[in-house]
């Protein structure tokens, strides 16, 4: 079947099997491999992307369900070579090690900050409960999200779609 969606600001139309998961569509058909698949059971959040302003685990969404949607992946977060505030904070606070959870964690963090621009340590933890990381113990991820919050509303927005985001 044909599926059309706007991915990172670009209109894309492709042939997919009806059962194709959005995560596989992004990775295998569109070559956007920053989105990782870590569990297949909607538990780990490595595949988190933003669809029409909502953070979504793309391993549990069919590509067809994103028909006509605006999809943002990690690759679409920076603008003109400048990192998004959440990306920049993950770097400065050492919020990533092996990097496998990072794409989903960054996208989820954007959603957390969209909902709550000034979260506490506990609120960040609760907001990221659905995103697992084995390397960092979450300590520096939480610090990174709190740091990103200092940059104001931009930390909770995605640039390409120019949308408000909610978790």
């Amino acid at each position: 079947m044909q599926v059309s969606m706007t991915v990172n600001g670009q209109q894309r139309t492709d042939e997919v099997e009806p059962r194709t998961l959005l995560a596989h569509h992004l990775r295998d058909n569109l070559g956007l491999t920053a989105t990782n698949i870590g569990c297949d059971s909607t538990s780990c959040g490595a595949c988190t992307v933003i669809v029409d302003g909502l953070t979504v685990k793309s391993c549990t969404v069919l590509a067809l369900q994103a028909e006509g949607s605006e999809v943002t992946t990690l690759e679409g977060l920076s603008t003109d070579g400048e990192m998004h505030p959440v990306q920049a904070a993950f770097r400065s606070e050492h919020g990533l090690q092996c990097g496998f959870c990072t794409s989903g964690m960054v996208m989820a963090a954007v959603g957390v900050l969209a909902d709550n621009p000034n979260p506490t340590d506990r609120e960040v933890r609760e907001g990221l409960e659905g995103n697992l990381c084995r390397c960092t113990g979450y300590h520096n991820i939480v610090r990174a999200v709190l740091k990103a919050a200092e940059s104001g509303p931009a930390a909770g927005q995605v640039p390409a779609a120019k949308q408000e985001v909610t978790a």
């Binding site: 990782n36 690759e75 977060l77 920076s78 990192m83 770097r91 092996c98 496998f100 990072t102």
Partner: peptide
């Protein structure tokens, strides 16, 4: 800060799959 991170954070690392 890590030299690895700009690519990891903008394009994603390149794992085997």
């Amino acid at each position: 800060v890590r030299t690895e991170d700009p690519l990891f954070l903008t394009r994603g690392a390149v794992y085997t799959d």
